[in-house]
Amino acid sequence: MWGMPHEDEALRQGLRELTTTDPVRALVAQDARRARREYPLTVLAGPMFGVAEELGADWRVITLGEATPQCSRDDLAGHLRMEARAAAEPEPYLAAARVLDWERHDELAVAGRRFRIIRVEQLLRLNLDGEPEPPRPTDPDPRTPPVPRYEVLAAPRHEMQDPPGREDPAEAEAAELAVRFAEAVDLPGTDGELVRADALRAELSHPVPVPMIPVFSVAEYLHDGWRSATAACPTPQRAREALAEYLQQVAPVVERVDERTRSAYDEAAGRLLAGRLDELAVCGRRFRIVRVEKAARFGEDGPEPPRPSDFDPDPPVEVLALRLRAEGIIED
């Protein structure tokens, strides 16, 4: 009973938005409010890294999804070589790519263009029972893979706030994420001192989280909770397909299952795809398609680059090649 007035007001606000604003925008806003209510806990799932190019105040994301900054530096070198093919003067692009082959750089200016390796936080929403949030009804979920497109990171613009009384879903989400990030930094005992110090510095240097397009993954429930089982996918359907591929092709080989289990896995994969399910139980195992939120932190100079404490074990490709030759692992 204590929650009824809040629920009634949320309903009235949603109805007002449906009749006075873009209906799609209103539904997305309602979905976001519901998610914040039903999945009030957030946990950081670790960063991903990518390449972005400055476009005025905004930044165009060229690649995203790498586990380490060096992988994204290698991606940038490849992108610069592709740009060289279409450029009237290719040498600046090729020269910059050669630099990245030997040196670590998280920002480069090439032919009047500015590129940066960016750090993007991944977050999972949980309910009070520790269950991760599945895809939302308003999340795009096409059966066929979407056409790849660039995502644009819009820099925060305070002068473009909506009129009072009208919630902008992105602004509401950014405000909540700022609070969640601060709470995550204050959790004791989860990270080393260097990681914590870097996170505290990021709150000052890049204080504004900018929500990005979510991705989707497969999680499996183990004895101590949910664990990610696949890489990030652009749509819930692609995550379902990844789980089906695992059940039909990977698990039978890796686990060396008997014919009965193999048949059960194959049947479950069929049910998963035919029913476009977001949760699946098979042979005592439980899987769920989960929604993974992304957010880039912005400061006055743009999106946050990698932090010193980020996992980044590999050297540039030519340095690695020299090391492997010296160790006799590869030959010229």
Rank of each mutant, 00 (worst) to 15 (best):
Arg116Pro: 09
Val254Gln: 10
Asp198Thr: 04
Tyr39Pro: 02
Gly56His: 01
Glu279Val: 11
Ala35Lys: 05
Ala87Gln: 08
Leu320Val: 03
Ser309Gln: 14
Asp22Gln: 13
Arg227Asp: 01
Glu7Val: 11
Pro135Ile: 10
Ala84Leu: 05
Ala251Tyr: 02
Asp332Asn: 13
Tyr246Lys: 06
Leu80Phe: 10
Glu267Gly: 08
Ala232Cys: 12
Pro92Cys: 13
Pro134Lys: 07
Val253Asn: 02
Tyr221Ile: 03
Arg157Ala: 15
Asp139Val: 06
Asp191Trp: 10
Arg157Tyr: 00
Leu100Ser: 04
Gln70Pro: 00
Val215Glu: 00
Arg143His: 05
Ala10Arg: 15
Pro207Glu: 13
Arg260Gln: 11
Gln122Lys: 12
Leu64Val: 08
Ser72Ala: 15
Leu187Asn: 01
Val257Arg: 03
Leu41Lys: 11
Ala321Pro: 01
Ala219Phe: 04
Arg271Asp: 01
Ile62Gly: 06
Val215Ser: 02
Val215Pro: 00
Ala35Glu: 15
Arg37Tyr: 03
Ala52Asp: 07
Leu320Trp: 07
Thr235Gly: 00
Ala10Leu: 15
Arg323Thr: 08
Glu176Cys: 09
Gly46Pro: 03
Leu76Ser: 02
Ala26Cys: 05
Phe181Met: 11
Val253Trp: 01
Glu331Trp: 04
Ala67Phe: 07
Leu11Ala: 12
Trp226Glu: 14
Leu44Ile: 02
Glu245Gly: 04
Leu273Ser: 02
Gln13Thr: 12
Ala219Leu: 08
Arg116Cys: 11
Val215Arg: 07
Ala88Phe: 09
Arg256Pro: 00
Val215Thr: 08
Leu11Met: 13
Gln248Ile: 06
Ala296Met: 06
Pro315Tyr: 04
His6Asp: 07
Pro188Arg: 09
His158Ala: 15
Pro156Arg: 12
Arg34His: 06
Ala95Ser: 08
Ala86Val: 13
Val257Trp: 00
Arg119Glu: 03
Ile117Lys: 04
Glu300Asn: 04
Ala86Asp: 13
Ala244Arg: 01
Thr235Pro: 00
Pro90Trp: 14
Asp258His: 10
Pro305Thr: 14
Phe49Ile: 09
Pro164Tyr: 12
Ala295Leu: 13
Ala251Ile: 04
Leu76His: 06
Gly165Arg: 05
Val61Asp: 09
Leu273Pro: 04
Ala45Asn: 10
Ala10His: 03
Glu17Asn: 13
Leu55Asn: 10
Gly78Pro: 11
Glu241Leu: 05
Glu171Cys: 06
Met1Phe: 07
Ala231Leu: 06
Thr230Gln: 02
Thr68Trp: 10
Ala174Glu: 00
Val43Phe: 08
Val147Tyr: 04
